[in-house]
């Protein structure tokens, strides 16, 4: 469904003609090619006043009907003064999926990007400290990818057993 043109969408469309604007149940979404995502986010923050990054997440479209790319990154933006929300999406593909980091724009992106790297294996170029965040350092897989099984690959059983005698 086409979105009602607002100031945000028309300005965004003027600055980034490749952006696709859509709307679902009153929520405005913009799909931006990965080549211009960095500039687009900077434009949204500095020109259009989206001063808060509410959330940053990723979706693995491996088994999704009609999907053309493997991963979709989702930036949920909010302008605190206007109370306006915008969902910005971009798509990346195997191998070596990577996008520019948003940490210089919003400090909130720091941990959110580390989490996406940990669970999906998407690199954020320019991130100051891109380490695993919730899983142990020696973990090798990225568990929220669709090709990783729910029960894991036996990592959870791989510990020494302590008996009473050793206790």
């Amino acid at each position: 469904m086409d979105a009602m043109p607002t100031r945000t969408t028309s300005e965004l469309k003027r600055a980034f003609p490749t952006a696709e604007i859509s709307e679902f149940r009153g929520q405005v979404r913009a799909a931006v090619p990965v080549s211009s995502i960095g500039d687009c986010l900077r434009f949204l923050k500095e020109q259009l006043g989206f001063d808060m990054l509410v959330d940053l997440t990723c979706v693995d479209y491996l088994a999704y009907r009609g999907a053309t790319s493997r991963f979709g990154l989702v930036y949920l933006l909010l302008s605190v003064d206007r109370g306006e929300r915008l969902v910005v999406r971009t798509f990346v593909d195997d191998p070596q999926p990577a996008v520019p980091s948003a940490v210089p724009l919003w400090q909130a992106a720091d941990w959110l990007e580390r989490e996406v790297w940990d669970l999906f294996g998407i690199r954020f170029e320019g991130h100051p400290d891109l380490r695993r965040i919730v899983l142990p350092e020696q973990f090798t897989a990225h568990p929220l990818r669709k090709d990783y099984p729910l029960q894991g690959r036996g990592e959870r059983h791989n510990f020494p057993v302590i008996t009473r005698a050793e206790g």
Binding site: D51, W106, Q107, A108
Partner: peptide, 9 residues
């Protein structure tokens, strides 16, 4: 400013 920039709510 920090609260907004760092996503506090």
């Amino acid at each position: 400013e920090e609260a907004i920039n760092r996503g506090a709510s």
